[in-house]
Design a protein around this nucleic acid. Structure first.
Lengths: 145, 145
DNA sequence: AATATATACTTAGCGTGCTAATAAATTCTA
DNA sequence: TAGAATTTATTAGCACGCTAAGTATATATT
């Protein structure tokens, strides 16, 4: 059988290379891919609970927790216990975390453009559509955003 | 800006979910995704040097090294110093490593099918084509296999 | 031949993902 | 209301990716 000719395998290899490239580009800014994933969520909706971030991103609670520790150290976010439920914490962007958006936005679009140089405009749209379908498969959702 | 509407972001999220799913499925067999990546290469071409595996897969030498240690522990491969160059080692599949192929082959195809249930036959082919182009971008190669 | 450079593997340490197990707080239920 | 079950965050520990630094061997240079 041709393992190498499965979407499975192709996606795996491309994904690793993709993340590696993103890490390298973000590294210059002083940030990591997992941190960015959370920043994206907070930029969209600040002050979420950890468990809600985890659920939204389909990541395990310990993953969120560990990444947040790094982000607190970097001064990107703060944590606050809820008053009406001492189990939970809310995560808030600091000014630094908010301002980071400008720089990352530019970098993110550059990465996007570079990656898509090998595709035509039509192919980009098709790829976006197909990845969206896969995301719905993995996330078990209907279109939302 | 809509970060969430970039291929970049979509690919990142899908990739994480994809790997997570693969890990879960392979876990039942007692193997991990990084190990499988190397197995794929060895099934195609046994007895490679570590540095060649790293180059072929675009992974850093320490990554290969660490993963191989786990595979040796599992009894999937063996390491042998080259006689004519004591710096290098060749990696050989054990019988266990060879026989593993049967089980994984079946599992791999199942995962492939499940993932692609959300796509039509045409979409599958298009996705394969687009991912191939991205792979060439990241790997810096022309079609080879 | 002696030194310098390059190559290959290894070790140490980090971020991102996971599961399992703990601790604390809340909510449910009998 | 007391005890049980659930929820939330955390800690510990693993695999997989990376870079930086170290060691050993091979090759080039002088």
């Amino acid at each position: 059988m041709q393992f190498h000719q499965t979407v499975n395998h192709l996606l795996s290899r491309v994904a690793t290379a993709h993340r590696s490239r993103i890490e390298k580009r973000l590294g210059a800014i002083g940030i990591h891919s997992g941190q960015l994933t959370i920043l994206f969520e907070l930029w969209k909706n600040d002050g979420r609970r950890q468990v809600d971030l985890a659920a939204e991103l389909r990541l395990a609670p310990p993953t969120i927790n560990k990444t947040l520790i790094g982000m607190i150290d970097l001064g990107l976010v703060t944590r606050e216990r809820l008053e009406d439920d001492a189990r939970s914490t809310r995560i808030f962007l600091t000014d630094a975390g908010k301002q980071m958006r400008q720089v990352i936005e530019a970098e993110w679009l550059e990465i996007e453009e570079e990656m898509l140089t090998v595709l035509t405009e039509t192919e980009r749209l098709v790829l976006f559509d197909l990845l969206t379908k896969l995301k719905h498969f993995y996330f078990g959702t209907e279109p939302e955003e």
